[in-house]
Structures are given as C-alpha cells and as structure tokens.
Design a protein around this nucleic acid. Structure first.
Lengths: 97, 97
DNA sequence: AATTCAACTTTGCATTACAAAGTACTTTTA
DNA sequence: TAAAAGTACTTTGTAATGCAAAGTTGAATT
C-alpha cells in the first residue's frame, strides 16, 4: 500500500469542480446558468472554477446567442474525460480496497 | 438534478484526508509513521490533517510505547465511519448518475 | 437614454495546505 | 553522563485557494 493518493488529480479536489465534471460526464454540454443553479454557487466563484478547468484544457467553451441572450456552454475535452476517469479509478482504488 | 454537491463533506475534500480515512476504513488502526510513509507527506502536514479530523471527532487517538519508542495510532470513531460512508454515497450519487 | 440580463473580471479577505524549523520526551550510543 | 537519534508533534511563515461582493462588458429591452 504505497502512494495511494498520488493518482488523485488536484484539479478535482474541490466540490464545485467535482460537480462540474460530473455534470459534463453525463451531459454533452451544459450552460453556465444551469451549472450555477445546480451547484448553487455564486457566478464569480463558478467562473473561477471553470477558468481553472479550462486552463488545464479539461473543458471546451462555446459562446453563442440563444434567443438573443448570451449563452456560454461547456463540454468535456477528451483530455478532461480521460483525466476524470483516471481520478475516479484512483478514488475507487482508494476506497474499494 | 439539484444541489448535487451539498452532501459532500468538506472535511474529506483534501487528498490527504481522503487517504487517511481510506486507510482507517480498511484497517482497525494505523500509526502515524505508517500513514506518513503511505501518503508521502511531511510530518507537520500530516499532523495538521489528523488534528482537523480529530477536531471533528472523526478519529480516535491512542498514544503508547511500542518497543520503547513512542507510537501514536489512529482509528475511526463511529461518527467518522458514518460521515465517510455518507461522503462516499454522495460521491457515488454524483458520478454514478 | 436608462434598465436588464448573462457572463464574466477584479478586489479583498479569510481559510487552507504545506514545508521547514523548532520542541519534548525517550532511548541509545559514546 | 553527555550527546545523538527517533517519534510525534507544534510553531512559524508563506503561498495558494475559495469565496462573496462589487464592478465590467456587450447586447437586448423599455
């Protein structure tokens, strides 16, 4: 039993980022407002977590207008999906044994 | 899909505390040195994480001498075991759906 | 022209994580 | 018996993080 937490990704330590990634795992894309309301966080806080995930290139951002209102939606990048899968596997390895 | 991260326990957000709790879930008791080496953290850092878990009354501490050396070992309190179980259930709910 | 809305960015503060150094107690070694 | 070593801390200091609140931007509505 050595180095059992080394494979946990620091990017997914926070509850908010865990929530974002989970939403994006099961939805092709989710918009800012939906994430904000689902996780019940302030918009500034959410923006900073999204920025952190974007910086790591774990998510893609699409800005457009829907019904003449700005709408920003997010989706997982392949790297993000992989990283999150690895993180979940590390979590399982940690607690399932 | 509402408030999906509300049931995650803040006490278990950090990798180190997640590691500590996991070790204690599968071992009746684990001593300081073993935790330190398994998680590869500095002793000061580990001590502070353990203190945080102790403050929440999630773990019990037993100090004794083994082979004439000081030995501090840790075990889960019932509350700690319950809280961690709830946390894991919340995690599963988050990612398994 | 003023207001509203979405999605930020900035600011500022409080908390946290961490390493490194220092401490206390005991045992071992010289 | 004095010095060194080992365990488990505690203290100190710093850098990173989390967060709310307020400010910003650009387009749409009134």
């Amino acid at each position: 039993m050595k180095n059992i937490i080394a494979h946990l990704d620091k990017a997914f330590e926070s509850r908010v980022r865990l929530g974002i990634m989970s939403m994006l795992m099961v939805n092709e894309s989710v918009d800012f407002k939906t994430i904000k309301e689902t996780l019940d966080v302030s918009d500034g806080n959410l923006a900073s977590h999204l920025a952190a995930l974007e910086k790591k290139e774990y998510i893609n951002i699409t800005k457009q207008f829907i019904e003449r209102k700005p709408n920003t939606s997010y989706s997982l990048s392949p790297a993000g999906r992989l990283a999150f899968k690895k993180h979940l596997e590390a979590l399982e390895a940690l607690i399932g044994k």
